[in-house]
Design a protein around this nucleic acid. Sequence first.
DNA 1: GATGAATGTTCGCTCCTAGTTAACACCAGC
DNA 2: GCTGGTGTTAACTAGGAGCGAACATTCATC
Lengths: 220, 220
Amino acid sequence: MTDAIAHLGSRLKEIRLKSGLSLREIARQLDVSPSFISQIENGKSQPSVATLYSFAKLLSVPVDVLFQSSGDVHIEPNKQLDIEVNRKNLAHPTDAWDSSKARISSINPNNRSLITMDSGVTWERLAATAEESVNFMEINYAPGAETNKSGEMIFHDGFEYGYALEGELEVTIGDLVLQLSTGHSLGFDSSIPHRFRNTGPNKFRGIWFVHGCHSAHTSA
Amino acid sequence: MTDAIAHLGSRLKEIRLKSGLSLREIARQLDVSPSFISQIENGKSQPSVATLYSFAKLLSVPVDVLFQSSGDVHIEPNKQLDIEVNRKNLAHPTDAWDSSKARISSINPNNRSLITMDSGVTWERLAATAEESVNFMEINYAPGAETNKSGEMIFHDGFEYGYALEGELEVTIGDLVLQLSTGHSLGFDSSIPHRFRNTGPNKFRGIWFVHGCHSAHTSA
DNA sequence: GATGAATGTTCGCTCCTAGTTAACACCAGC
DNA sequence: GCTGGTGTTAACTAGGAGCGAACATTCATC
């Protein structure tokens, strides 16, 4: 077990290098010796929780990320071949799609109405019913993609429900941070500011249900 | 520094209590002494990262949560394995579960509240929010299982949305018959009489969302 | 090509502390 | 009374968190 622990060092190193900080610089800021950082990164020693926590803070990375398997988080270049049906940058999914007149809607996977967001985020509509202010959709987050590049959180009336199909998604709701992985589900009052981010190396897919929202806002 | 570290113990205790596990039970599963757990929870000692990590895993909570100040997180109590939590034969999922007071609900796959129906049909709750008349769940139909043995159809106020994860499900809505397979989704006005049946050889799993229903009826 | 100032690494060493084994006090049920 | 559950504390120990010093390496610059 716990190869998450075993690879913690290399993961730290990987992230540190990406951040462009030198080992000695880290050591200075964490107020520990450079040699110790080296030992940690090479798996020859393990930090205390306090040290690990400061380390994560310094790299401005949620601690959970450090336990994830490393991998080259390479973001898909904006290959928007295949004609995107629609391109919006909505504050949030209230009236992403128009409501339909049909009382029954059945949609097969290759036939979904698609919205492509700027940031590597897509929504695919899963049903088109007569209900307004309801969105039932599959959401996709490419590696590194996030709800809002600026780091702003969004909030809106209503409730939001999600189920993770594949990959990992870091969900921030208020000051709560959750890691969503396959099979995990959640629901929350979406008037609480929230944002999502794919911190993992693979794409994230999830089933999302948003309803009862009439207006959307963003908050720094 | 970082009162996040200082409060780590109490945070752990808080979450453990919510999960309904005893300190000794945790100790057994983590393979450490009960006294040590106590010391950790009371801030008299600090765990190693490995211990902390296993602790978080056991509580099925992302590590980051442990560093946050306490808040209203809803964690589904350890579903006492095998013993089915509840056994009902509801006409339909309106108030299958009580609403929760928590504003945020996160449930991990092994920890869901389960309702077993007579007919090889189970519902697993995916989120427990404050909303009433809302059910977000994973539904399971064993091969041959059906909504209603008698062949009756059901209808109720509101709308119903579904996404097929695995297997096949025959969906009858009014006089329309659909075959749902992986990735297929649907939504419909649930005042239209409907019923489901697993006609395939494998079990069916799907994500289901039902809301806005206040009364349920059956119709031959 | 020597001097310096970065980088990261290894080897011992010290001392702190993660984790132990008691024994403790409490409460519920029989 | 006992037995089996809960959580807490004290005294102890072994192992490893973290250190300092010396190491090898790249670069610039003179």
